[in-house]
Simulated assay, not measured.
Amino acid sequence: MAGNLIEFKDVSFRYSEQDPWVLKNVTFTIKEDEWVAIIGHNGSGKSTIAKLINGLLFPQEGEILIGGKKVTEDSIWDIRKDVGMVFQNPDNQFVGATVQDDVAFGMENRGITREVMVERIQSTLEAVGMSDYQFTEPHRLSGGQKQRVAIAGVLAISPRVLILDEATAMLDPNGRKEIMQTVSQLQSKQGLALITITHDLQEVVQANRVIVMNKGEVWKESVPREIFTEKEELRKIGLDVPFVTTLADALKDIGVSISKEPLNHEELLEELWTLHLRT
């Protein structure tokens, strides 16, 4: 059984003494190999949590532990070796003249030897399907390709935690699907803790667990299927539910007996097919 890698203990945060609290007494844990989706309306505190994990911000109250180590100004450089973040706009993360240079940047800052850097550049670009673009200038890439390179650059530092902060928001549906398939495979293969902060419900249903934020507090945390049974309550706090669950409710209203809450079209079709065979 994997142990806790990330621990938030009664964490509260605000940007200044005059501002309202962005987070209020937030407590949760994330295990070493777990995929957790953090969702909530705009301003609920999702991105603030990501910045606190990475040490871009520090809590005024409570404490945060990464791998048992408390996040402080003294420990932050050690913490950042374990935490990698990919943001919404990949252009904000590019610093190299070529894809290869960009992937190498984080490793250079950590003093990784050239031999190791060369191997990791090749292996991470291969992992995200970008080996053929090693010497390409980043501005020549599509949005999805840029995000793949940004992910490769983060993976190259061998983090224990990968945070995607709305990292697929600027991509089209196919681009989002491809990126999340890649990330899911990498997370499973490398045993990373994966945190996705997203509005994309298809990403949410793939996670092992969901933390729902509302007005700076943890509103609920559970597996996706249980979260999306709370349809009306989710809508009340400004969140939507997957279309397939709305469709399943409509079918129930006209007398179709669906035994479990479907999370995707495949599950709904399987339920309907099983029902058909019974009749």
Rank of each mutant, 00 (worst) to 15 (best):
I53Y: 00
D74F: 05
K9C: 06
P20T: 11
G84F: 05
W219M: 08
L192H: 06
K215V: 03
E73R: 14
T182D: 01
A152T: 02
N42A: 01
E115N: 11
T168K: 04
A248D: 05
V154M: 10
K215H: 13
Q122T: 09
N89Q: 05
I254L: 02
E178A: 08
S12T: 14
L247P: 08
E232W: 04
W77L: 13
F243Q: 10
A104E: 03
V210Q: 03
E267Q: 13
V128I: 13
E7D: 10
G43E: 05
S188C: 08
L275H: 10
I157T: 11
I66Q: 07
R110L: 13
G43C: 08
V95C: 08
T245Y: 03
T182E: 01
E233L: 05
N54W: 07
A167G: 10
S44D: 08
G144D: 06
E137Q: 15
Q60L: 08
I197D: 01
I64T: 06
I30K: 05
V218D: 09
I195C: 05
E34Y: 07
V256M: 08
I258M: 03
F58G: 04
D172T: 09
T198I: 11
E126R: 12
K252W: 06
T245R: 04
E270N: 13
M85E: 02
K81T: 12
N42Y: 04
A169D: 07
S131Y: 01
P20G: 15
T29R: 08
L268Q: 10
I227T: 01
R160C: 11
E32P: 15
I258P: 02
E270C: 08
V83P: 00
F94R: 01
R235K: 15
Q122G: 14
V22A: 15
V83K: 03
Y133F: 15
A50S: 14
F228C: 04
E63K: 14
D172A: 12
N42T: 14
T98Q: 01
A207E: 00
S12D: 11
M130V: 14
G62H: 12
A248W: 02
D19S: 15
L171R: 02
K51P: 09
D240R: 03
N208K: 09
E203G: 09
K46T: 09
V210G: 03
P242C: 03
D165K: 10
M117C: 06
F135P: 00
V116C: 08
I258K: 04
A37H: 03
M130L: 15
E230C: 08
E63F: 00
R114D: 13
Q145V: 09
Q202K: 13
G40P: 02
G238M: 06
E63R: 15
W273L: 15
I237V: 06
K9R: 14
L125H: 00
V11A: 11
Q190I: 06
T29I: 04
T229D: 02
K51H: 14
Q202E: 15
I179T: 05
K81P: 06
E61W: 02
L192D: 03
D165F: 14
E233Y: 05
G84V: 11
G175A: 04
L234V: 04
F58A: 01
S131Q: 08
N208C: 10
T274C: 05
N54C: 11
A37L: 10
E108H: 07
S123A: 10
